[in-house]
Write a protein that binds this DNA or RNA. Structure first.
Lengths: 335, 335
DNA sequence: CTGAAAGCGCTAACAG
DNA sequence: CTGTTAGCGCTTTCAG
């Protein structure tokens, strides 16, 4: 279909390898002939076939990111950071949506390895069996996990400081005088969310306050909505809720709206993530900010470094978080 | 690094091509030997190198989507639909964020063609020069544009029915008794938005109502915010506004909030897109629903079809929209 | 049904 | 500095 290196070599009257060298900008080629070759290439609109190059170099200039769902604004931010870093390094980024489904994850990894991607950023590996993890590790492809998977220290990891964040959320609510709390979180296999939950509960204990009511469900808008509906139906004593991510918080806000519960007058709510829309919800959401874009960007940069270095040790990076106060929490100490 | 077809051929005591045939499930190989080969392959954990295969077949099992920014929830939905369709067809999807920047777009297309992707879904081609468009068309790679670019009918297109949507918005507002309208829209080069605007204005004319005040700006939250601020400062006679997309509508809501204008009591507002968060704004936004996921899915399916058929005609697909009534519009007929 | 051989488009020693 | 020669791992004629 296209025009090949052979064509331009013939046209330029030089050998194939000379043409190759000229184009790849390697040393050891006369500036004159090099310019000549380059000119021909440009004129003929030559587009080097990266597939062929990949076959011989063993590198595909492609990175992959496996997230549960790109529609989750958190992952969209991460993916954007990742893609920007990949673009800067002249790599493509393939996007995979696993829905946290084991079978899909396995199929993705298989396809990715078959295509010899240069690195994989994925948001969990806990769904894989031990054998599958071994195989992935043995493949030699650099892998970075977006959240710590306690079971396997052999992959590199990067994550926001969930423990600090959960603590921050608890302390904030406590400082506003809240004592009876409700907590919405995701499936227990979800490491990130679980860390937030743990830290939150621990901070409450440390403050000698009663254990919050913990509800688990899907970590989505709908999940948050349903959990909140359920909670409101049976228990109205809580004065505040901590949702382990913003989208669950939005679901909760929605449920509150429908149940005639005013926020923050009747109920305070704090989220986690600080996704963009949290500024424009009603009310604007108080939340824990997590540097999503930077997470994705840093992850790909780590991957790039691992790709270059033949030998590398798993690296573990934690990125700081901070409280962002908006209007969804009320001070009830005066009440 | 990996184990190759040669290895499994040797191990199975057959020829390379027999091994290949067994694995690719082609006819003309004895079931017995075939099972044998398959067994060996499984035992040795053979993973066929798709790069090598791609080199000979000329197909990469990879699709690409170029959006302006994946963080825009609209594109996240489209990308998810696209990825699901690609996954179903055993293809990977590479994600590109162009920021609508010409240079980036060109670089992406170049890289994508160099990797011999099987198809490209992109949200505009108007940023490219005529020559660049020619080159893209000449490359033979199937391309689908996410919005109609009037300048080039030679690429396939897919889009929501913006005309119908603009009409729907006007009719809805009219049916509620609104006569003096404000309209917020994006840059005039933006085909999608412009179609909505045109249809909206036309419907007003058809109803013999005064021309709405049209304001153009950035089609973002901030753009909507600034346009609304400007409009509120000089003119308060409008009873309703139609924003050409939801994020502009949110900006408008925000501006109204700050200006002490209550929605929908003082001002009705209707958006376009029905992005997920429009359910949870305050008030929940009445808007025109556009099937984003289906758009992405259908686009990739079209691409797939084009890939198979050697010969194909540019196809133009329009997908229906519908009105979603929520709480941001008030009936003022009784007033 | 199976083997031999050519080649996809490119890079990378190795000589000269 | 440039040409020759091997492949990278796989598919695909073409013979047998």
């Amino acid at each position: 279909m296209g025009i090949t290196l052979k064509d331009i070599a013939r046209e330029a009257g030089v050998n194939l390898s000379t043409a190759s060298r000229s184009l790849s900008g390697a040393y050891g080629v006369h500036p004159h002939t090099r310019e000549h070759v380059l000119g021909i290439a440009r004129r003929l609109n030559y587009r080097p076939n990266r597939v062929a190059r990949g076959l011989v170099t063993g590198r595909s200039q492609t990175m992959a990111v496996i997230v549960s769902d790109i529609r989750n604004p958190f992952f969209a931010e991460v993916a954007r950071g990742a893609e920007d870093a990949a673009y800067a390094a002249d790599c493509d980024l393939v996007l995979c949506n696993s829905d946290l489904d084991t079978e899909k994850q396995v199929r993705y990894i298989d396809a990715l390895l078959a295509k010899r991607v240069d690195g994989i950023l994925m948001n969990s590996v806990s769904a894989l069996t031990r054998a599958q993890q071994d195989q992935l590790a043995a493949s030699g492809v650099p892998v970075i996990l977006l959240n710590r998977s306690p079971t396997c220290k052999r992959f590199s990891t990067i994550l926001a400081d969930n423990t600090e964040g959960g603590t921050l959320a608890a302390k904030h609510l406590i400082s506003l005088g809240h004592k009876r709390l409700l907590h919405l979180t995701g499936p227990s296999q979800h490491g990130n969310l679980t860390d937030r939950t743990k830290a939150f509960l621990k901070a409450m204990q440390n403050a000698s306050l009663p254990d919050p009511v913990v509800i688990r469900g899907q970590h989505t808008f709908l999940g948050g909505y349903e959990m909140a509906k359920r909670a409101f139906a049976k228990n109205r004593s809580a004065t505040a809720v901590f949702a382990a991510n913003d989208v669950m918080a939005f679901g909760c806000i929605r449920a509150a709206l429908e149940s005639g519960i005013r926020i923050p007058d009747d109920l305070s709510i704090i989220g986690f993530d600080n996704i963009e829309v949290s500024q424009i919800t009603c009310p604007p959401l108080t939340t824990i900010h997590q540097p999503k874009y930077e997470l994705g960007k840093a992850a790909i940069e780590m991957l790039l470094k691992m790709t270059i270095a033949e030998e590398y040790q798993p690296e573990h990076r934690v990125i700081g978080v901070r409280l962002v106060e908006r209007q969804s929490c009320r001070d009830i100490r005066s009440a």
